[in-house]
């Protein structure tokens, strides 16, 4: 993976399009039918959530499994946004995800540059150490990490969420493989001109690594936004909760008021949905290029 933006193969069409062969045409029609049915099934939960959220609670109680509503309204959204703490949770999630992603890009790109471009003593050891991080599932560290953050008095602060999420091995390797794909003369000529290594990194390589940086940024952001177990353990005060943890308490307080429960679910999913719509290609390519190879 020399770069993270493999351009979509130009004018690539569906395979096996042989209009002369009736078998192929019939098969394509069958594919479309099956695909449309599956897509409809996949849309059901999303549409059902939106549908429930715009129905009056009384109607949901009398006929729960009906799609039709005679009185659509946005009352549930109004109530959730005014009475609940959704706005605060939005802000918490946004700040935590943003700071984590920014720090991850800066810290991991420096490390990736060092591993890929600087021939220093101990590089193999460092590479091995970073590689080991790929094998450790963060879920197995909850016990000691919790004690550590309790000892540092950082529970219920943003730092408890940010600090462990910044140094990720995957991000280092994404940057390292990107940097090692760039031509070597870039560094050499700058070194001859007397630039220090940090200058080579910050002035030449960092500006060139936009594709890698945006992939790491988006993925860290999305991952941080959706993280559940660790924030559940460390963010116990409602003021500092993120969206996923906050919504977990919502169900207890709204009980069976399903319109409001669904309205908060829709609101919780909305920001990342927007991010996905905007960056769809980047995200999809990022998965394809970091997952494969």
């Amino acid at each position: 993976m020399a770069t993270l933006t493999v351009p979509e193969a130009p004018t690539r069409r569906a395979p096996a399009k042989a209009p002369t062969d009736p078998r192929h045409r019939a098969f394509t029609v069958l594919c479309v039918v099956v695909l449309v049915i599956l897509a409809a099934l996949w849309l059901v939960p999303m549409l059902w959530a939106v549908d429930t959220s715009i129905r009056p609670e009384s109607e949901i109680t009398t006929s729960p499994a009906t799609w039709w509503t005679s009185h659509p309204s946005l009352d549930a959204y109004r109530q959730v946004l005014s009475a609940g703490r959704m706005p605060v949770w939005y802000l918490n999630s946004f700040l935590v995800a943003l700071l984590t992603a920014v720090f991850a890009v800066v810290v991991c790109s420096m490390a990736g540059f060092a591993v890929a471009r600087v021939r220093f003593r101990g590089r193999r050891i460092v590479t091995g150490l970073v590689l080991a991080g790929l094998l450790i599932p963060p879920q197995t560290l909850i016990m000691p990490q919790f004690q550590e953050f309790a000892g540092l008095h950082l529970l219920n602060t943003y730092w408890a969420l940010i600090l462990p999420s910044v140094p990720t091995s995957v991000a280092v390797f994404v940057f390292a493989s990107f940097f090692s794909g760039l031509p070597g003369e870039l560094a050499e000529s700058a070194r001859i001109d007397g630039a220090g290594w940090f200058r080579v990194y910050s002035r030449i390589f960092l500006p060139l690594c936009k594709p890698a940086a945006s992939a790491v940024f988006i993925f860290t952001f999305v991952w941080s936004w959706n993280n559940f177990l660790w924030p559940l353990l460390t963010m116990t005060s409602t003021e500092v909760m993120t969206i996923p943890v906050g919504l977990n308490v919502v169900q207890d307080s709204y009980g069976i008021r399903y319109a409001q429960v669904m309205a908060s679910a829709v609101l919780g999913a909305l920001p990342l949905f927007a991010v996905f719509l905007i960056f769809q290609r980047r995200i999809v390519e990022g998965i394809a290029n970091t997952g494969i190879k």
Binding site: A39, W42, L43, P45, M46, W48, A49, T52, V222, W225, N226, F228, I243, P244, V245, L247, N248, V250, Q251, Y258, V261, M262, S264, A265, V266, G268, A269, L272, F273, V275, F276, I283, V284
Partner: peptide, 19 residues
């Protein structure tokens, strides 16, 4: 359609499916 659910927070998905 097939990828969108993946970017949803697990809590939102859980609330919808519980319902």
């Amino acid at each position: 359609v097939f990828f969108a659910p993946y970017v949803m927070p697990v809590t939102c998905v859980g609330l919808v499916f519980t319902w």
